[in-house]
């Protein structure tokens, strides 16, 4: 028996939308601690890892130790787009039904003594669970900046080049690209905004390095403005994947690991 409820269906929709940028389907792993979703994109360049802890939900109940539900994200997203923003989202699953394996999605809107209800059932699919996990890493470099700023730069660069070069230095980040026709060059500096801390840029770069990333991945990560207006990027070097994370309340959030491009 699984049942979880959320008063902000928009946030869950944003999470699923972000995942569906790279992944068609993935296992939703429900445990007593909450929901975890993780998957590699088909090119094996980006790994998406989402945690929605039990306390992140308004109500959460999972009787099983671990429940693995294979979900088609595109279909789930279609369903979630049908939910009004002012509704209560409820996900449920009954595992005593041998015939049909489906995740029920319900939206309820209070109408005084009565409730308007819309119900959907998402047929589940079998997906082999990942047999590997992310190793423990000691991040030596970290940068925190407004998600909107990263989005703006990645969007601009995407107009010129499929590849962006990030040069992390102790006191600046240079983001650039070049094509046959043009070049673009952005400099981002540490900055404390005393009136609005969310505008600040903080960097702690112990070992400066340079890495190239595929622009459209960075652009899609930066679409998580609704999840957190701040993005944290953790790094070691050009050979180790970079981590982009967008945290939410109660230890929840979305994080991505992305493999860089090596210069010959």
């Amino acid at each position: 028996m699984l049942e979880c409820k959320l008063q902000e269906p928009k946030v869950f929709r944003s999470v699923v939308e972000a995942m569906s940028e790279h992944i068609k389907e993935c296992n939703f792993e429900f445990t007593r601690e909450g929901l975890k979703m993780q998957a590699l994109d088909s090119s094996h360049i980006a790994f998406t890892f989402v945690t929605l802890s039990a306390t992140w939900w308004n109500e959460y109940r999972c009787d099983d130790e671990a429940l693995l539900l294979g979900v088609n994200l595109e279909t789930l997203l279609k369903i979630l787009k049908c939910g009004p923003d002012n509704s209560l989202l409820a996900l449920s699953y009954e595992n005593d039904d041998d015939e049909v394996s489906e995740l029920k999605v319900k939206f309820e809107v209070d109408r005084g003594e009565k409730k308007d209800v819309a119900e959907f059932a998402l047929k589940l699919t079998h997906i082999d669970p990942m047999e590997e996990e992310v190793p423990e890493l000691t991040w030596t470099n970290e940068l925190e900046m407004p998600t909107q700023e990263l989005f703006r730069i990645a969007r601009d660069i995407s107009l010129f080049s499929e590849i962006m070069v990030l040069e992390f230095d102790k006191d600046k980040l240079r983001i650039s690209c070049s094509s046959k026709e043009s070049t673009a060059d952005y400099l981002v500096h540490p900055f404390e905004d005393s009136t609005n801390a969310s505008n600040s840029v903080r960097m702690n770069i112990e070992a400066p390095f340079k890495v190239s990333l595929t622009t459209h991945y960075v652009l899609s990560f930066a679409k998580n403005k609704n999840i957190n207006e701040r993005v944290v990027i953790k790094m070691i070097d050009a050979e180790t994947p970079l981590m982009f994370s967008f945290s939410m309340k109660e230890g929840s959030g979305i994080c991505y690991y992305i493999a860089g491009r090596l210069t010959d």
Partner: peptide, 14 residues
């Protein structure tokens, strides 16, 4: 030119 790395060798067995 740069060469895209993948995450194939990044993960460790559970």
């Amino acid at each position: 030119m740069s060469k895209q790395q993948t995450l194939a060798s990044f993960f460790k067995p559970k």
